[in-house]
Design a protein around this nucleic acid. Structure first.
Lengths: 160, 160
DNA sequence: TATTGTTATACTCTATAACTATA
DNA sequence: TATAGTTATAGAGTATAACAATA
């Protein structure tokens, strides 16, 4: 008991700092600069979401994965569409919905962006052992999953 | 080489998801609800920064630790001051500067908030072994430090 | 009637620029 | 002249509300 409280008190500042580094270090903006691209962060996030999905997605599904609300995605897609980075195609299963897919340009941009970011991450952990990298990946995944799960139960404590 | 690329490709989505959980899960807002407090997220962040410092801080130092810009902190302090959660005291060493300290109310609020958040974190990892918690804390700290370090070198590659 | 998406609007958070006062 | 802070303004990012079209 004492040990766990102790550990987490130590963990909290690191989580906060990681959040700050990710949000305010201009990490994304610098990667885009290196690629010579003018694009905002949320727009890029749509591209990456589609790239990682590996298949066309519905607007609502993009919003889900980005953890944002539908109308926001609609707006971002306007810009991406105008630039020719994505395009909307019909959803054969539902005439109300549209599927969004990456254009070749969009695919290449997302791939180059991810390579840049991954390159920096790799350099950051260049002197880590393979075991440490694996352990970190595994523990981080577990932590995020358990945290998200615990937080989601805060929404619906009806059985109590 | 292959292994590290492989690992990091797996890590990236988890980092992104952690970021989303932290920023958009209303984690902070829910904690404040439970405490019956009406306060915005950045204001609370000032309180937590002061609480973790354990001593009065200058405005610029608060901005540094929060990774934001000076004028933003000034504005947040207006509100916190009006609510009696912080107060400004003279800096004996420099008449230009002011030191900001938590009031008793502010101290209690920050402490209760941190207890709530830490409680949820503890519940999230309730079934982890002590070893796993320690390993995670240690690897996360190292990762954040190495990442911040690598990113800071992107600013100044003058020797190249 | 429930769901997918769009349009229009408003709000939160943070930055930049111009300025004041002390060092 | 450099530094600490303030005021005023602007911008990015995201949400809510009202609506249209299809299921």
């Amino acid at each position: 008991m004492d040990h766990s409280e102790f550990d987490l008190t130590l963990v909290l500042p690191h989580i906060a700092r990681l959040n700050a580094v990710l949000n305010r270090s201009r990490l994304v903006e610098r990667a885009l600069d290196e690629l010579g691209v003018t694009l905002d962060r949320p727009g890029l996030s749509v591209l990456v979401t589609l790239h990682m999905a590996g298949e066309p997605l519905r607007i609502g599904e993009i919003a889900n994965r980005m953890q944002v609300v539908g109308p926001h995605v609609t707006r971002l897609l306007h810009d991406l569409d105008r630039r020719g980075l994505v395009r909307k195609i019909a959803d054969p299963a539902d005439q109300r919905a549209r599927l969004v897919e990456l254009s070749p340009d969009g695919t290449e941009l997302a791939a180059r962006y991810l390579r840049t970011i991954l390159g920096w991450l790799n350099e950051a952990v260049a002197d880590w052992t393979t075991d440490d990298r694996r352990a970190f990946a595994s523990l981080l995944e577990r932590f995020v999953k358990d945290l998200a799960s615990r937080l989601s139960t805060l929404d619906d404590p009806p059985g109590a």
